[in-house]
Design a protein around this nucleic acid. Structure first.
Lengths: 238, 238
DNA sequence: GTCAATTTGTACGTATGTATG
DNA sequence: ACATACATACGTACAAATTGA
């Protein structure tokens, strides 16, 4: 036996193959038996290497099916300005947004407080699903003060873009004032909407966007599929 | 073989023994051979159980010496809900901090890549528990390049502060280069350490700190109890 | 829907290497 | 130097889940 264990060399070899694109996300690796044969080691030695890769989240084994390269969790930068479509497109993934609900109703207590509205004020609600490469990434629900943005729903229906809808109301620039992140198991309905197994972990963010004067213009709540998303804070984000 | 694998029963048995105080923090477990004999299984089956416990940080194996129980919190204020808002920028300031492990070892692949070390390089590991009002909030594990910070462990042992330990090595200023946040259900052992029900949601953050020149100095991984913590990002934090 | 082949998971066995005390 | 104890690595066999004919 050399300096370092045999299985580490195998792990590194497979890691490099994945990094080089030899095995792409979603691909199935050769079977354990084939890998053992190729590297000239016992199947258990391969399994030790695969166990390390699985622990690091690079691959995922399915009994009877094979070992698969994981999709890297979709990076979702949390910055002053979130650009969902640009970021996903830059990552080579196909972004999609599906409208689930557009309505106007009375703000509840939490919404009224966050948006600094009086009780009983009306808000527009925009609820939808964000997808990448066809897989649901997040369920979002945004509320806007109806008095200030009277045509919000129509604007959202045509563009699906919050930024564009704000621009249609003369609001060119808005920034994120506060974000709160928690985690909890998915409720059955939420799991179904995100196409996750029941009880899967959910990343919940609550964010408030404000205009240039600091007035709240949007309360956005998002429920991310915990294993499909990695919220990232870049250096500029701290 | 029954419904669930043999090794899980052995893992749970040992977990309960530790919880009951049969094996106290710092104690050495019986040898793998003794455990195999006691449970009437092969030594490898015991090793599979121990590997699971080690991965979650409940025990720690030292070649030639034995398997040791890590320090865990004793008090368990049941049903106590802690309201705790931790700001990421002030992540180093928590009411209480408990050291679970201080050791030096070879960096694994993920750590070596994040810290830009060559494979086989040594790292110092600082693992501990953050608590508020006696309830566990988060488990953290930080690794530092050993070559650059030779006295890290001693500095951490005396101060418990990463900032102070860096300062003792002449590093006055360091910044967060990248933070990644994901969510997933707690493993049984992690749930035990954070005193959560099995399957509870975990907020996992991975952060890299760099010095003024942009060189990585710390890879910090933290597992937050999803329902006891709300990570908040203020406007100044974006 | 069933059956058979494939593939990973579990469990045991044996031997040897390497660090500890 | 020596015994102890974990780490690695080989081997065998069968169970359980998946897949495709």
């Amino acid at each position: 036996m050399g300096r370092s264990p045999l299985w580490t060399a195998i792990r590194d070899h497979i890691t490099e193959d994945i990094a080089r694109g030899q095995y792409a996300p979603g691909d199935r690796l050769p079977t354990e038996a084939q890998l053992a044969d190729r590297f000239g080691v016992n199947r258990h030695t391969v399994r030790r290497a695969l166990a390390d890769l699985a622990e690091a989240g690079m691959v995922h084994a399915r009994r009877g099916a094979g070992v698969f390269v994981r999709h890297r969790p979709t990076a979702y930068p949390l910055g002053r300005r979130v650009r969902f479509h640009q970021n996903l497109t830059a990552a080579g993934r196909v972004p999609e947004r599906r409208i689930l609900l557009l309505e106007t109703r009375i703000a509840n207590a939490e919404e009224a407080e966050a948006l600094q509205l009086e009780t009983g004020a009306q808000v527009h609600v925009y609820e939808g699903l964000s997808l990448a490469d066809g897989a649901p990434i997040a369920l979002f629900r945004s509320v806007f003060p109806a008095a200030r943005f009277p045509n919000m729903l129509a604007a959202l229906r045509s563009s699906q873009s919050v930024t564009a809808a704000f621009a249609a109301h003369g609001l060119g620039d808005y920034t994120r004032a506060r974000t709160e992140i928690t985690a909890k198991p998915a409720t059955p309905t939420l799991a179904a909407q995100l196409q996750l197994p029941a009880g899967a972990a959910i990343l919940r963010t609550v964010a408030v966007n404000v205009d240039g004067a600091g007035l709240p213009v949007e309360l956005g709540r998002t429920w991310f599929a915990g294993d499909r998303v990695a919220l990232t804070l870049g250096a500029e984000g701290l």
